[in-house]
Nucleic acid binder design. Structure first.
Lengths: 222, 222
DNA sequence: ACCTGAACACCGTTCAAGT
DNA sequence: ACCTGAACACCGTTCAAGT
C-alpha cells in the first residue's frame, strides 16, 4: 500500500489514541499490574486526571487496548482460504496476539460485550455458513468457539502472569506436574497419567487441537 | 444419611473453614466487590490481620472458596451413567454452580492450577478413556473441554456482574442486541443476523449445545 | 476545551503489641 | 499460638482551580 500520511502524531496533544498506545506499551513491557493511571500519566507527562477527559475509566481503557491488539491481529486473512482454514487462521491470530500480549487474555474474559470479543465472535460466526452449519445452529456454534478461545486465553494469560518472564518454562511446569503427582492417585488418576506430559506440551499445538475438535464437532451438525 | 454430628462449629475459634464459609456468604449475597478483608473481619468479629494467620492472602482465600463450591457441585454423579451422560452431567454441575455463585466463574479463569480447576480437569479427563478417545489425545481433549467450560464460566460471571440482580434480563440483552444492530452491517453481518436471538436465548441450553459439539468432535478422533 | 494535581475513599498486607 | 488494629503503601476516581 502507498505511504499515506499517518495521523499527525503531535507530541503535545493528548488523545485517546495516544493514551491507549501508551497503555499498551506499559502492559507489554511491565505487565498488567504496572498499568495505573499514575504511571500512565507520568509516561505521558501529564496529570492523572487529564486522562479522564479522554477515557471514561480503566475498564474502557483496557477494552480499547484489547480491541486495538485484536483488531490488528484479525486484519488481513486469506480470502481464498477454505472456511476451515479461515477459522483456524482466525483462532491462531487470536492465540498469537495473546502470546505476544498476555494481558489481552485476561481482558477478553472480563467483559463479554467489549469490542474485541465482538470482533472475534463476528470472525467465527461469519464462517459458520460456509462451514455448512445450518442457520439455527450458527449462534450456538460460534458462541461455543468463542468461549473455548476465551477460556484458553484466560488460562494462558494467568500462566504467563505466574511464570516469570525469564524463568525456565519447562522447570516451572515440572513443578506443577510434581504437584499433581503428589495428589491422591485414587481421586486424581487422570492427572497422574498426564502429569509427565505437562512440562513438554506445546500450548499452541494443543490450542489448535482443541479448535479441530470443535470443527469436527460442528461438522457433525451440518 | 444419619445425622452425624457436624464439625463442632464453635463460635469463638477462628479456622480457615469458618473464614472460607463467611467469604462465600459475602460473595453470594453482596457480590465479588464486597469481599474485602475488612468486611470479612467485621463479619467474623475479629481484626483483619487475624485472617492472615489462617489464610496466606486473598488469592488463596478465593481459590479455597471456589474449590469448596466446585467440590460439592461435582460430588455424587451417577456411576451407571454412560460416559457421554457423565460428561454432560459434570459440565452441567459446573454450570449450575456458577449460575448459583457467579463469582466462581471469575475465579476459575484466574488461576489454571487451583484446586477447583484440577477437580474439573480430572472429572473430564477421567471420562476420556470411556469415551473411546485414544490415549495420546486425552490430554488435548480434556484440556479443550476445560477451556470451553472455563471460558463460558468467565463470560457468564461477567454478565452476571453487569446485569443488576433484579434487572430484567431480556431487557438488558435487548439493549446489547440493539448495540449490535447499530454496528456497521458490512463489517458485522453475523452479529446483525444473530442479534434478534440474543434476548431470548437460554444460556444453559447454549452451554450444553457447546458441550455436545465438543463431544461430537471428540467422537471423530476415537 | 483541556489540563493539573491534591484530595477522597478506598484497597491488601504487615507488624508491633497484646493475650 | 493466636488475635488486634493501627499503619504502610498503594489504588481508581473526582474536582476545584488553572490555562
Amino acid at each position: 500500500m502507498p505511504t499515506t500520511p499517518r495521523s499527525p502524531r503531535r507530541t503535545d496533544a493528548l488523545t485517546k489514541e495516544r493514551i491507549v498506545e501508551a497503555a499498551i506499551e506499559i502492559l507489554d513491557t511491565e505487565g498488567e499490574s504496572a498499568l495505573t493511571f499514575r504511571a500512565l500519566a507520568a509516561r505521558l507527562s501529564t496529570g492523572s486526571g487529564a486522562l479522564y477527559w479522554h477515557v471514561a475509566n480503566k475498564d474502557e481503557l483496557l477494552a480499547a487496548a484489547a480491541a486495538d491488539v485484536v483488531g490488528t491481529a484479525l486484519a488481513g486473512g486469506d480470502p481464498d482460504a477454505s472456511p476451515r482454514a479461515a477459522v483456524r487462521a482466525l483462532a491462531l491470530g487470536v492465540f498469537d496476539a495473546i502470546d505476544a500480549h498476555p494481558w489481552v487474555g485476561t481482558q477478553l474474559s472480563r467483559e463479554p460485550w467489549q469490542s474485541a470479543v465482538l470482533q472475534i465472535f463476528e470472525g467465527f460466526g461469519g464462517r459458520m455458513a460456509a462451514l455448512g452449519v445450518p442457520e439455527e445452529a450458527r449462534f450456538d456454534s460460534a458462541s461455543a468457539l468463542v468461549s473455548y478461545v476465551l477460556g484458553l486465553a484466560a488460562q494462558y494469560a494467568a500462566a504467563a502472569r505466574l511464570v516469570p518472564k525469564d524463568a525456565d518454562r519447562a522447570a516451572f511446569l515440572g513443578d506443577i506436574a510434581s504437584g499433581w503427582l503428589r495428589l491422591d492417585p485414587t481421586t486424581y488418576p487422570f492427572l497422574h497419567t498426564v502429569a509427565p506430559l505437562l512440562p513438554e506440551h506445546d500450548d499452541r499445538r494443543q490450542f489448535l487441537a482443541g479448535v479441530d475438535v470443535f470443527l469436527n464437532g460442528i461438522a457433525t451438525v451440518s
